[in-house]
Amino acid sequence: MHIAEGFLPPMQAAAWTAVAAPFVVHGGYAVVRQIREHPESRLLLGAAGAFTFVLSAIKLPSVTGSSSHPTGTGLGAVLFRPPVMAFLGTVVLLFQALLLAHGGITTLGANAFSMAIVGPWVGYAAWRVTRALNAPASVGIFFAMFFADLSTYCTTSIQLGLAFPDPTSGVIGAVAKFLSVFAVTQIPLAVIEGLLGVLVFRVLRRVASVELIKLGVLDRRRRRAGDFEEEEADVVP
């Protein structure tokens, strides 16, 4: 998904940066507010950023000028909401561009828009829908991770299609071609990422249930007055 340095036309690269910038700035304020209101969540916030960094650094060759990999943004979107991930995801992409030559500076706005903005919002929407349907939390996490991943690649395909329209079928044909190439690697990766997200969330429910309750992700249930039992904690939409 990381579009390589200099691969997009300058005007399009600048346009994607302009579109992504307000989301990232708002996300920065959301992170500051999150730390101020819930200082105990700083470790969990850092873990969400690290999770995204590690997963999205797993690079597989794909379309020329881009790559396939998990994104890891769906879990952070569920824990901290999409605005926070807009900032964290952009920081992750910046460090990867500078340290790993994964992505680029001129294409940072385009990559941020697809992975740090569209992906988290779509993943969070999937989480809310599954919870509204009273699906188990594990199902919600799976679909949040799955759709955050796939929507990122759909967005990247559109970005590449706009930059390199097909000579005969135009932008639509180019987008379809990019989607078909990405699908070979990305659909299996999205499934694996969803399963990994379920495992990580189950661990978090055991080791960080108090923090998750304060964040509003878990709902404390009491079977007896004044007595909280961890296994009674459930997930709220």
Rank of each mutant, 00 (worst) to 15 (best):
A4Q: 14
E5T: 12
E5F: 11
G6H: 13
F7H: 14
P9R: 07
P9Y: 02
P10H: 10
M11R: 15
Q12D: 05
Q12I: 13
A13N: 07
A14Y: 09
A14V: 05
A15M: 14
A18Q: 09
A20L: 14
A21M: 12
A21E: 06
A21Q: 06
P22E: 04
F23D: 00
H26Y: 13
H26G: 15
A30T: 00
A30N: 02
A30M: 01
V31D: 01
V31T: 05
E37C: 11
H38M: 08
L45Y: 03
A47Q: 11
F51N: 05
T52A: 15
V54I: 15
V54R: 14
S56C: 08
S56T: 05
S56W: 03
S56M: 08
A57P: 12
I58Q: 10
S62F: 05
S62E: 03
G65F: 06
G65K: 05
G65H: 00
S66F: 03
S66V: 05
H69I: 04
P70Y: 05
T71N: 14
G72Q: 03
T73F: 00
L75D: 03
G76L: 10
A77Y: 00
A77G: 10
V78Y: 03
F80L: 11
A86W: 02
L88H: 01
L88Q: 00
L88D: 02
G89Q: 03
T90A: 03
L94W: 03
Q96A: 09
Q96C: 08
A97P: 12
L98P: 13
L100K: 11
A101S: 14
H102C: 09
H102K: 15
G104N: 04
G104F: 02
A110N: 07
F113H: 04
S114W: 01
G119R: 01
P120S: 09
V122T: 08
A125P: 12
R128D: 00
T130C: 15
R131P: 07
L133R: 15
N134K: 12
P136H: 05
P136N: 06
P136L: 10
A137V: 15
V139C: 07
G140C: 12
F142D: 04
F147A: 12
C154M: 14
T155D: 02
T155A: 15
S157L: 06
L160W: 01
G161T: 01
L162S: 08
A163I: 03
P165M: 06
P165V: 01
D166L: 11
G170S: 12
V171R: 10
A176N: 11
F178R: 06
S180I: 06
V181R: 10
F182D: 06
F182P: 12
F182R: 13
V184Q: 11
T185Y: 11
T185E: 11
I187F: 13
L189I: 15
A190T: 05
A190E: 00
E193H: 13
G194E: 02
V198P: 09
L199H: 11
F201H: 10
R202I: 05
L204T: 01
V210Y: 11
I213S: 14
K214M: 07
L215P: 07
D219I: 10
R220Y: 01
R222G: 06
R223H: 07
R224H: 10
F228V: 12
E230W: 14
E231K: 13
E232Y: 13
D234W: 06
